[in-house]
Design a protein around this nucleic acid. Structure first.
Lengths: 249, 249
DNA sequence: AAAAAGCATCTACCATACAAGATTGCGGAA
DNA sequence: TTCCGCAATCTTGTATGGTAGATGCTTTTT
């Protein structure tokens, strides 16, 4: 990591989100600023952080990243500001900027937020299930089974995310999913440390349970199924902290 | 609004939040950057936007604000970035920056998010009510009654916010309240347009209902009381849109 | 030897200058 | 009159230099 003077060519489009940067209440924010250097730096750094190329605790500086990407310090600085607001960086004025360590309590609260919103979503969907909902969700699950059979874990993960996002859309609160997505970055870092243990078969079965309850309009069963689905990944955290103590605060 | 060449002296501390800027998962972000110019500009602009001094649709430019506050463009620009991520500004590259109009759908979804989280909070608190909880909340309500009798609406509003924040703390998810607080800025703008109609007596009565249910460990009643409490302000939006159509998109 | 003072060297913050896209309005041509 | 085109003048995006604060090492002092 010492001779990395010239870095990657800064891919034109970041590969994380759909195509917009994280927004707040009201929907899209950027409109047409995805062509700027600062925006590309945001995407590149975020990918590196979530994929653990940049590890929690790593010290990075404006000049450092600027030289690595061959740009000036200004857009890098603005990227730092954005990422700091998203909780991925910690700017210590006049000192340094570091990749934020994962906060176990933060992970716990992010899960709380996600569960709160997703439970409310599934309630609303189950309370007023539209006519085509069953078909839409069944198709999604079929795709997931295909991806699972092909051992395409990346595609499966994408489809899993799409499943939850679709539920948000069906509830008329797609923006709420963007909120979850922002927080999921924290959870994704943990998940990246525990790759390979996701049992897609079980996830699919749980998805089917959720869809079944929703189709029947059984609000209580749908809520319970969603809570069980979200709680399944819960056990991983403590073990991960023991395996990678330096990455947590 | 034309002769405002030199503006306010940029108060040392913004008056909105407790003392930290809006953070994301993991807790505080700033540590010691509250002394920077950019930070003070953020606070000043946010206050002006939420209090409708800067109205939705107003066009502001970096140079404009920089001259108004007697600083350079650079910290103003960084303030714009932060406020854009919070959904208060819309940066249109190479064009202009405008105070974001209030999105009715955004308001609706912000309410959804708030209700989702607050309902989950009240559930957890009611499920495991600690011994001192009743006393803490009773004291808060007593303060609210005092503020209401004194017609100190500003203090009452502060206490109302503290009530909800305290519930989050008791549930062990204080950060979740920070999230709600961020979104509440959108709702606060609407509320600012409908000043004077808040019936504090009714709010206090509803708070009492919530506390009573929590003290008794009645989860169902607590959830219902919280939903009713949050739903009360719902009716105002459509009327407000008719009164101020230019402020909405 | 241990502690304190000084200095080299980092950092992020701020100011300023320049560049490039977008808008506006004017002027000329049809 | 209407329409097209160009140029002045907005805007934000980017680059670079200087400044103040924090850190850590060296040197000096006790």
């Amino acid at each position: 990591m010492e001779d990395s003077k010239r870095g990657k060519p800064l891919a034109a489009y970041p590969s994380h989100g759909p195509e917009m940067e994280s927004a707040r209440a009201g929907g899209k924010v950027g409109e047409a600023l995805e062509g700027t250097i600062a925006f590309r730096v945001v995407g590149a750094l975020r990918d590196d952080i979530v994929s653990m190329v940049l590890k929690p605790g790593d010290v990075i500086s404006e000049s450092d990243i600027a030289a690595r990407y061959g740009v000036s310090r200004q857009p890098v600085r603005e990227a730092f500001i954005r990422l700091a607001q998203q909780g991925l960086l910690l700017i210590r004025p006049k000192r340094a900027t570091v990749v934020k360590k994962i906060s176990p309590d933060g992970v716990r609260q992010s899960r709380f937020i996600r569960e709160s919103i997703e439970v409310e979503i599934i309630r609303r969907v189950a309370t007023e299930p539209g006519p085509e909902i069953g078909q839409i969700l069944d198709d999604l699950i079929a795709d997931q089974e295909a991806a699972s059979s092909a051992n395409d874990s990346r595609r499966f993960h994408k489809l899993d995310e799409l499943f939850h996002r679709t539920l948000a859309r069906l509830a008329g609160v797609e923006y709420a999913w963007q909120l979850i997505d922002d927080h999921k970055m924290q959870l994704d870092r943990v998940r990246y440390l525990t790759l390979g243990v996701s049992s897609s078969q079980r996830a699919i079965a749980e998805h089917k349970q959720i869809v079944k309850a929703v189709s029947q309009g059984d609000v209580v069963a749908a809520e319970a199924a969603m809570r069980a689905h979200l709680a399944r990944a819960e056990v991983l955290l403590s073990q991960t902290i023991e395996d990678f103590p330096d990455y947590f605060e």
